[in-house]
């Protein structure tokens, strides 16, 4: 999988690159408008992570260029602007997703995977992870072929953890993943704990191995 990260903030770009490279992605970085334009024109990517505010131009202009090239590239806008209307406008212009800063790397990773999956396998959108099968279209989970009855929240957490497998996902990231960007939910670490507990119980009842590991109370890791 080939990613292009268009981000001018050096330290943030470093973190993103480090996270994705350890996930066996091929990652390239463009830190200003001109470099980004050059890369977009000359190479193909599976997904582009696009910052809106760039030195030398706007990310939205780049988005128009990408869409003009008619390559089947997924685009995720990453912006500090954080406005609901900006998101709608970005998506209208053809972006596949929108993430406002600050975001968790695990969240970005999950979104990137989701975009790539949608682009590559439209229709048969399934995740196979050992004995666990997730049908993204039906939003259904099967363990060794048996359907698993779980709530929407538990489903979301499961997909999120599997998307970030072998990585420690903080409770904070999970809480934000569940509650969304602008929701004002406090105290939601307890919710995460409760939901994970239920999810683990249901998985073990159906005969699934215990892949969800607790990491010192700071987060969880799907370890297959």
């Amino acid at each position: 999988m080939k990613l292009l990260i268009i981000e001018d903030e050096e330290e943030l770009a470093k973190s993103i690159l480090a996270y994705f490279r350890s996930e066996d992605y091929l990652c390239e970085l463009a830190n200003d408008f001109e470099h980004a334009k050059e890369k977009i024109n000359n190479y193909s990517y599976d997904c582009i992570v696009l910052d809106i505010n760039l030195p030398g131009g706007s990310g939205l202009q780049l988005l128009e260029i990408i869409k003009g090239l008619k390559k089947n590239e997924g685009v995720i806008i990453v912006s500090a602007k954080n406005s609901l209307d900006d998101r709608i406008n970005g998506l209208k212009l053809g972006a596949d997703d929108y993430l406002s800063k600050p975001f968790h790397l695990s969240e970005l990773n999950a979104r990137v995977q989701s975009v790539i999956r949608r682009k590559k396998f439209d229709g048969a959108n399934k995740i196979q992870e050992n004995e666990v099968t997730i049908d993204m279209e039906l939003k259904a989970v099967f363990v060794k072929g048996f359907p698993l009855t779980i709530t929407k929240t538990e489903y979301d957490l499961l997909v999120f953890l599997i998307a970030n497998k072998k990585k420690v996902v903080s409770k904070n990231a999970m809480a934000e993943h569940l509650s969304g960007d602008d929701a004002d939910m406090f105290n939601n670490y307890d919710f995460v704990y409760a939901h994970i507990k239920n999810l683990k119980k249901k998985l073990s009842e159906i005969g699934c191995n215990d892949y969800i590991k607790t990491i010192y109370g700071v987060g969880y890791k799907w370890e297959a």
Partner: peptide, 23 residues
């Protein structure tokens, strides 16, 4: 607005720190 980016950097560094092998 201006605070969003430093906070984003901070958070991404914590996410990275969390992946350290021998935490």
């Amino acid at each position: 607005h201006e605070m969003q980016t430093p906070v984003a950097v901070f958070q991404s560094k914590l996410d990275t720190l969390l992946q350290t092998k021998d935490l």
